[in-house]
Design a protein around this nucleic acid. Structure first.
Lengths: 354, 354
DNA sequence: CTGAAAGCGCTTACAG
DNA sequence: CTGAAAGCGCTTACAG
């Protein structure tokens, strides 16, 4: 058999072999080649196999840009976030990208922009790329984009961010998480359960307070004192402990539900300094399951995980449904949190999970 | 003037107005419209203005997919990372995406995959999308991709990851950072400077040890004892302090350079527990400038910042050069770290910067 | 079962 | 200075 007129560039020039090459190699038309590769149309198995063999041999990879032009779909979505730190966004992004990757859609990351102009520029860029959808991710459930989004003609989802009326959003269920944490304390026999949390103007704070109150009410218990607001910091947990656990007090809590792991950490440090044993004298639950804190605290923290990875996956699946044209009711979905037991409440506590 | 034959969809159907619409509206050919919009070719200013006005009026946005098909460039790069946590990758990604955004290139995020098959799938997807370049980001400078990359025909850059021979990589300059930290201690008058760090098999550990030794040698000082290796954890800093600062010791250090902020935190906590004043009796420098630790430690940590945001920007600019066809010498670049002064060494320490 | 042709929305030689 | 035409690499009616 004589040489082909073109050099045998089997996988030689990646990205350069086109469907035309495959068709020629298989001795079929471009149309047939396309159909064989896409499992579409009807043809003899023999033809299909021959085309596929040619594609493999040549190392053919379809150009998704060309495909996008005709299908009028980019098979890509944009992720806009203002969370430069990445603590919330990266797990969400990982969940999102893994759930979409299976369906061949990739995600553009537009990270770290907070001022309106740059956000707008990112959104424009995403539109120019004809993304199939947009997800707006944030670090606070009560803050959204710095401006209202006009109708973009594509699905928009909000993840861990405020979602305008009529839109679709996903956030962790702070109230449920708090409820679960406090119920856990109740089941363990605690009765005087205080709550120390972060800034009062965060919606997350209010929801966690509600969860605390509600779980207590269901157990026939009264809140132990007023909620103590602070700054989400270790220091604020530390200071709260100094006051809450002061020896002079008539009654002291036997448990504290903390608004985040840093607060719990500070509170436990202070308690230990005061000779109070955790969990014997005082049980503590945190919030976040930020492992760098939760696992380093002595004893390691029992805490609430907001399941951002899973949240990202749910956002991904919902986006795929929307792209497929399925109907999804507008509104905010609160996704369940999970409690992670370690040792700060006594009871079980996974042995290996320091 | 009679109505046009098409409805006046000025920005009505976003993404639906094409260059053909603009051309018709401006009364020119598609060719001319394209040239006017791209500032290319020669034409009367009047024509150019008329086209631009038409584009604005219609809300025209060029379809970058179509543009990509003809220019054979996607104006996108892929970012592959195994850092699900995001502590390293997100700053790098933010720097990368901001430096490229100005030039109209977007970044695809492929996050959280560690096993070879999924990484390969992501790389395949990026190739199918004909990305203009790829950046491989990691969380350790001595770990790279789980397999060797064949020649992809596009620029590949490594960021905070091991880089194969002949490739181009960027990592923080651990030795320089350590040297700077230790010199800072020396300038402040410290003479007995110990070093407590993380795992011995991390290249970063070895480099920081070198920086420590070198800075001491330059000052005519001997290392204070052996390096203490551990696990990068608070606990390991705590335990090291217990031993290093034990009252029974003939000689105790007057400063400790720590391999990360968590170690510094644990060490300071232990020192305080032993009645040792920081920074009076003992100066401590950390590494990472992980603010959640550095600012929460009492006193707040003076520490070394690895400047990942800037690293991401440099990677972005280098990528743009490579894409433009400029030559960039292969090899690993170590980018300078920056010292952030707070209070754990005494001396200055920004007042406002808690 | 298979193929020639049109077309996705642009850019860019090639001609006037 | 301006335009008709070809073409980027695919998919998909429309015909056989």
């Amino acid at each position: 058999m004589p040489d082909d007129d073109l050099p045998e560039n089997s996988a030689q020039e990646p990205g350069r072999v086109t469907i035309r090459d495959v068709a020629r190699q298989a001795g079929v038309s471009i149309t047939t080649a396309s159909r064989a590769l896409n499992e579409t149309g009807r043809m003899t198995q023999e033809t299909r196999d021959r085309v596929r063999a040619a594609a493999t041999e040549l190392g053919y990879r379809p150009n998704s840009i060309a495909r996008g032009l005709v299908s009028k779909r980019s098979f890509a979505v944009g992720l806009i976030t203002n969370d430069t730190y990445g603590r919330f966004t990266l797990p969400v992004a990982a969940g999102l990208s893994s759930s979409m990757a299976d369906r061949g859609v990739s995600v553009f990351l537009c990270a770290g922009e907070d001022d309106a102009d740059r956000v707008q520029a990112n959104i424009d860029a995403m539109q120019d790329r004809r993304v199939d959808g947009l997800v707006i991710a944030g670090k606070r459930i009560d803050r959204g984009l710095p401006f209202d989004l006009p109708d973009l003609g594509i699905p928009v989802l909000y993840a861990n961010a405020a979602c305008p009326p009529g839109a679709i959003g996903f956030v962790p269920d702070d109230r449920q998480g708090a409820h679960m944490a406090v119920s856990h304390l109740v089941v363990l026999g605690r009765r005087r359960i205080a709550h120390v949390t972060g800034k009062k103007d965060f919606e997350a704070s209010a929801l966690r307070v509600q969860g605390w109150e509600q779980a207590l009410a269901e157990a026939g218990l009264a809140p132990f004192g007023e909620v103590r607001y602070g700054t989400w910091s270790e220091e604020c947990g530390y200071d709260a402990a100094l006051d809450l656990l002061a020896p002079g007090r008539a009654e002291r809590p036997d448990a504290v539900f903390c608004g985040n792991d840093q607060i719990a950490r500070g509170l436990i440090d202070a308690a230990k300094g005061m000779g109070i044993d955790v969990p014997e004298d005082l049980a503590v639950v945190g919030f976040d399951n930020w492992e760098i804190f939760a696992k380093a605290t002595r004893p390691p923290l029992t805490t609430v995980d907001m399941e951002f990875l899973e949240l990202g996956r749910v956002v991904g699946h919902t986006m795929l449904d929307l792209i497929d044209g399925k109907d999804v009711a507008p509104g905010l979905r609160r996704l369940p949190c999970r409690i992670v037991e370690r040792r700060s409440c006594g009871g079980g506590g996974a042995g290996a999970d320091t």
